[in-house]
Design a protein around this nucleic acid. Structure first.
Lengths: 118, 118
DNA sequence: AGTTAAGGTGAGCTATGACTTACCAAGAGA
DNA sequence: TCTCTTGGTAAGTCATAGCTCACCTTAACT
């Protein structure tokens, strides 16, 4: 890697985390309320350890938050990871819009020139 | 996979695409203006075919847009992929905020109860 | 037509990431 | 204290994503 990653998304760990469908499913289950590991695992086609490992990744990416209550480990959505992602996606989106607009007006210039030359 | 992926992000291909650091670097290079494949490859530590393959993935995810001019293939940011991502991230972020708020007020209830019982 | 520039595709290699099984730790309750 | 529940960790397996090299196509220029 000779290029240093742009400011982008602090290491991109959130994006890496979101690339996995099982992890996205976990996040979707947590939309409503905090849920313990076992309950999450029960609704997924993978083993509990797998879920545990996924939650670890999501936590490292600041996408979920853990609070324990006895032996139960509850996980809930963590706004901070999503807030950061929002900033990244928004800025890319804005850049996309402006370069797209520039492209469109360039095309219009080309069309005009062609009509004139015909 | 017994669980069907939630509405989420139409197959999640954009998220998968964004998980790779080289692809994120490509997108960052395209923030300013459309660029041809060779120019992109020259600034990256990977071969031109690798860049070609990455661009293919980005295009499939509607994150870039291709327009050819002679033998040159120009790539530019495509707003549509980012717009879709924005919707997904925004909705997750909102859910995160509300469940977080609920969690905080629950904790306050618990604190109050403890104080009362002491 | 021959040649050069630009870029996509296919085959094969390798590293890594998602899974499983087996095991260990720690609260809760008898 | 014994045991049942809940969950994290380690080790090993397997599939796949990202890379390179070699090759083919197409447009531009002589």
């Amino acid at each position: 890697m000779t290029y240093q990653e742009m400011p982008a998304v602090r290491g991109g760990s959130a994006l890496v985390a979101l690339a996995d469908p099982t992890r996205r499913a976990l996040l979707d289950m947590l939309r409503g309320r905090p849920l313990p590991v076992g309950e999450l695992a029960r609704q997924l086609p993978v083993s509990r350890p797998a879920v545990s490992q996924h939650l670890k990744a999501l936590k490292a990416a600041h996408l979920v938050h853990e609070h324990r209550q006895g032996t139960r480990h509850y996980f809930s959505l963590n706004p901070s990871g999503f807030a950061e992602l929002r900033r990244y996606v928004d800025s890319m989106w804005e850049n996309a819009l402006t370069t797209f607009a520039a492209y469109v007006s360039d095309q219009q210039d080309i069309q005009r020139t062609r009509r004139r030359d015909r």
